[in-house]
Design a protein around this nucleic acid. Structure first.
Length: 190
DNA sequence: AGGCAATCTAATG
DNA sequence: CATTAGATTGCCT
């Protein structure tokens, strides 16, 4: 179900290894945010798009992200437009958004169990893989904290490309879930 | 330490 | 429509 109102599209600078992110916002909230223009999660065609970087919405989103990356803010607190999600994906992403806060992490398996979207039998194992796939198709980077979902025995994956995993590390370091490395260039982690 | 099966969705022919 | 390939996991040798 595409949103009916016009959507503004713009980019936001970040200190992430992957560089700036691309964002799209409807009148209801942030609709889409990706690390790359050619990210595996692409902005769907057919939307009524206006490429406006000076829009009020763009300014607010950019400011919130800037505060977050600088360590001045622990939650983005931006409204979300869930239009691009549905079914199981929406259920799991909303569960993630509602239950895993700044500085916390869950494993793929735990999230599967917690969301109650799978029978107890499946949630114990195989469902974790599906959760991973679902995370990979998150339409809204960072605001929906897919980076806080990790493997039972390590970091897990993150998108595609050489910058993807370093980006996940960067975010988890910022939030204090990982110890900073010697080349850490962000603010003092919480 | 390494192999295997189980679960769902979207992309592909 | 059938097949495939995933951001996994726990159990088995």
């Amino acid at each position: 179900m595409p949103p009916s109102a016009p959507v503004v599209r713009f980019s936001v600078d970040t200190p992430l290894p992957s560089g700036r992110i691309r964002v799209a916002a409807s009148e209801n909230g942030v609709l889409w945010a990706a690390f790359h223009e050619d990210d595996t999660v692409l902005l769907p065609e057919g939307l009524d798009l206006a490429d406006i970087s000076a829009d009020r919405r763009a300014a607010m989103v950019a400011e919130r992200y800037a505060d977050y990356f600088a360590g001045r803010r622990r939650g983005l607190e931006l409204p979300i437009d869930w239009s691009l999600t549905s079914g199981l994906q929406r259920r799991v992403l909303q569960c993630l958004y509602g239950t895993v806060g700044y500085g916390e992490t869950v494993t793929y398996g735990e999230l599967a169990e917690r969301c109650g979207a799978f029978d107890a039998e499946a949630a114990r194992g195989p469902a974790a893989r599906i959760v991973g796939t679902l995370m990979g198709t998150t339409p809204i980077a960072i605001l929906i904290p897919a980076h806080r979902v990790v493997a039972a025995d390590g970091l897990g994956g993150f998108g595609a490309g050489p910058d993807a995993l370093p980006t996940k590390r960067w975010l988890l370091t910022l939030e204090g879930s990982l110890a900073p490395t010697l080349d850490w260039d962000g603010p003092d982690p919480a």
